[in-house]
Amino acid sequence: MSTPTHEYHPDSTGSKIGMWLFLFTELLLFGGMFLLYAVYRVKNPADFHYASLNLDTKTGAINTAILLTSSLTMVLSIGMLERRHRKASLWFLIITIGFGVWFLVNKYLEWSHKIHHGIYPGSEELTGRTAGENLFYSLYFLMTGLHGIHVVAGMVVLGVMVWMIGKPHHRVLPVTTLPVDAQAHAVSVTVEYSEDAKLDQQKLIRLENAGLYWHLVDVIWIFLFPLFYLIS
């Protein structure tokens, strides 16, 4: 708890606490929308049932499988880094991002299919239909849209991790490039930077946190899928 330097030091538990608290806030963010969904579904059960039949369950199921598999590759990436197989870890990370892209492509096709048929909030086609169907599609676009933004955010985070793990971390600063006042302490500076273990641990903590975020994106989809595609 009381290490002698002001510079931050890896506190694995601390970072995890911070990350979990952040994940709570994300869950609550979607919680507000689940609340609306629950109220409107209770008010319009028949319309919701009918609208849900028109969603393509197959695409939804494939996307669920994609995200679940991507969570597996995410865990494998962390496991590999733990065992110090940096390359393998990187590859699994890239595969995870690839799954994210695949998911979004499917989502894009699904959305454009709906929009092509004139089904989007406030469209002429929907105005002629029941209030419940309108609400269903508004919630569908809002919730899957916000989830999609989270997938993109997750991919950006994973992309940063690729860059972080990919760059060679063994960096010993040549003494002459240091500011003059630091040259006196050059020995200790060099030691700081060559502490492989410490840096590795830091990267691992970050990758684990990035993984937690990715799982969250996955978990939210696991709730969205049955609510929109399956329950009827």
């Binding site: 507000g32 008010k43 909030p121 809002l142």
Partner: peptide, 30 residues
């Protein structure tokens, strides 16, 4: 931590309503 996200999503909905015209709070549309 526990309350602010609800404000966030509520404000997102106001923005979405104004920009995308979702009708989630419009009695005329259910």
């Amino acid at each position: 931590i526990l309350a602010t996200p609800i404000l966030a999503v509520t404000l997102i909905m106001v923005m979405a309503e104004r920009i995308l015209n979702l009708g989630l709070f419009d009695p005329g549309r259910g």
